[in-house]
Simulated scan of single mutants.
Amino acid sequence: MRIIFMGSPDFSTPALDALVEAGHDIAAVYCQPPRPAGRGKKDRPTPVHARAAELGLPVRHPTSLRSPEEQAAFASLGADIAVVVAYGLILPKPVLDAPKHGCLNIHASLLPRWRGAAPIHRAIMAGDSETGICIMQMEEGLDTGPVLLRRATPIGPEDTTADLHDRLAAMGARMIIETLDRLDQLPAQPQPETGVTYAAKIDKSEARIDWTRPAPEIDRQIRGLSPFPGAWCMMNGERLKLLGSRMGLGKGTPGALLDTALTVACGTGGDRGAVQITRLQRPGHTAQSADAFLRGIPLGPGARLE
């Protein structure tokens, strides 16, 4: 099929690779424009832009698709279908209608749960037992279109957003190839009207840890915000980014360490009132396991995280 691919971050690149490997004709790749990044604040292309350039594919990165000129340029590509994966711009109706078979979106949740910008983070933070991928026919509403293909995957007790991100990106790549192969056979199932939730964009204000909260909530906060923006707390005036955790045993004053393995007391009573930190990062250092951290900074009962 002749395809317009629309995506920007790392999550999108496996789908682009899969479409190329399957022999589809990529008419153009649309992505967000390069933006200043790094210490030098030089313009850096998105991961999809960089990968498309490696593959020798034509790249377009308009700041908007609302102008008649951009919509005409999109329509002139004569695509059979557009595949959209975390593109980052709203698609106006003339764009949605331009390809022969419309636009398909690879969405990282089990719709209608977690429509919106941050479905992976929100699924973990809410304590969902599973998530998945939906291949959705796009329409003007926010992730409201009918679903052609749906697959679920469990959320493990130590899964982080990074873990699910990679697993779901690979799932989405496989599923879009299957969807295109079976496009004439897959009925578009309308989403149910019940069970709708919205995955609001993550705000950095959500990242600071309050150790008086229940241990399960803190555990999910740490895992759901890993690697970005990273849940954090203070220790001896130094900001620690916490990137991995599991539920721990024990109870005590919230924020107090209960052992020599970075088990921290939280606000929940009972024997499951603690969280064990498994991965963390100090300012100016790379992320490291708790064991590696403790070899450099031995800590034990009596120490506190603020």
Results as ranks from 00 to 15, higher is better:
Ala118Tyr: 00
Arg279Lys: 13
Arg150Phe: 06
Met175Thr: 06
Ser226Asp: 00
Ala170Met: 11
Ala199Glu: 02
Val20Ala: 07
Val48Glu: 03
Trp232Asp: 01
Ile155His: 04
Pro192Val: 01
Ala292Val: 07
Pro34Lys: 09
Ala152Leu: 10
His121Ser: 14
Ser289Gly: 15
Ile218Ser: 08
Pro9Arg: 05
Gly23Ile: 07
Lys100Arg: 13
Arg220His: 03
Gln288Phe: 02
Arg122Ile: 08
Pro112Asp: 05
Ala231Gly: 11
Glu130Arg: 07
Ser245Gly: 01
Tyr198His: 15
Leu294Pro: 08
Pro94Met: 02
Ile3Thr: 14
Thr253Glu: 15
Glu69Thr: 11
Ala292Pro: 00
Trp114Arg: 11
Pro146Val: 02
Glu217Ser: 13
Ala28Asn: 05
Ala52Arg: 06
Ala27Thr: 04
Arg167Asn: 00
Ala22Pro: 06
Asp259Gly: 09
Glu306Ala: 15
Ile3Arg: 00
Arg113Ser: 15
Thr268Asp: 14
Cys134Ala: 15
Phe228Arg: 12
Ser109Asn: 10
Glu21Asn: 10
Arg167Met: 08
Leu299Thr: 07
Leu96Glu: 00
Gly38Ile: 13
Asp271Asn: 12
Met234Tyr: 08
Ala50Arg: 14
Leu242Met: 09
Leu242Gly: 07
Gln137Tyr: 12
Gln32Ile: 01
Glu217Val: 10
Ala292Met: 02
Glu158Lys: 13
Asp43Glu: 11
Pro119Gln: 05
Pro9Ile: 09
Asp181Trp: 01
Gln276Ile: 10
Asp166Pro: 01
Pro154Leu: 10
Met175Ala: 08
Arg167Val: 14
Leu164Arg: 04
Lys93Asn: 12
Gly102Pro: 05
Thr194Tyr: 08
Cys31Gly: 09
Met235Ser: 09
Trp211Arg: 06
Pro58Phe: 03
Asn105Gly: 06
Pro68Gly: 05
Gly296His: 13
Asp219His: 13
Gly127Asp: 08
Ser129Ala: 15
Leu242Tyr: 01
Ala37Pro: 00
Ala15Cys: 12
Glu139Ala: 15
Met6Ala: 15
Pro94Trp: 07
Asp184Cys: 09
Ala118Ser: 13
Gly7Ser: 09
Ala28His: 10
Leu110His: 01
Gln276Glu: 11
Asp159Pro: 01
Ala27Lys: 02
Leu180Met: 04
Ala256Glu: 14
Gly224Lys: 03
Met138His: 02
Gly132His: 07
Arg239Lys: 15
Arg115Trp: 04
Asp271Ile: 14
Arg113Trp: 03
Pro192Glu: 02
Lys42Ile: 11
Pro92Gln: 04
Ala86Arg: 10
Glu54His: 03
Ile135Gln: 07
Ile297Ser: 11
Cys233Phe: 01
His107Lys: 01
Glu140Leu: 15
Ala123Glu: 01
Ala117Pro: 15
Leu280Ile: 04
Ala170Glu: 12
Ala207Ile: 02
Ala82Lys: 06
Asp159Ser: 13
Ser109Arg: 10
Met1Thr: 10
Ala18Asn: 03
Ala18Arg: 08
Val84Asp: 00
Ile222Val: 13
Pro94Gln: 03
Ile177Leu: 12
